[in-house]
């Protein structure tokens, strides 16, 4: 069971990384507008006018 002395700090490092990701996303403004994206996703893009989407489909 001594392995827990290694695994627990290790898991904490991973948790800290996840928290860091969250802090970054807040600081970069991803939570500033929580209403528009909900509407934006309802709108289909024109497939032919948006090449990147075509590429994604392929």
């Amino acid at each position: 069971m001594e392995i827990v002395f290694l695994l627990l700090p290790l898991s904490l490092v991973i948790a800290a990384a996840a928290l860091g990701g969250y802090l970054w996303s807040v600081r970069s403004g991803q939570y500033d507008d929580l209403d528009t994206p909900a509407h934006r996703m309802l709108i289909d893009e024109d497939v032919k006018s948006d090449e990147s989407e075509v590429r994604d489909v392929e």
Binding site: T36, H39, R40, I43
Partner: peptide, 28 residues
């Protein structure tokens, strides 16, 4: 307040030359 607003406003660059980018924020 609605999807149509977001959509048409964010398509403004297609309608008016000189506008390069638009981004709507419904919350504000």
């Amino acid at each position: 307040h609605c999807a149509a607003c977001v959509w048409v406003l964010e398509k403004l660059p297609q309608v008016l030359a000189g506008v390069t980018h638009t981004r709507v924020n419904l919350s504000d």
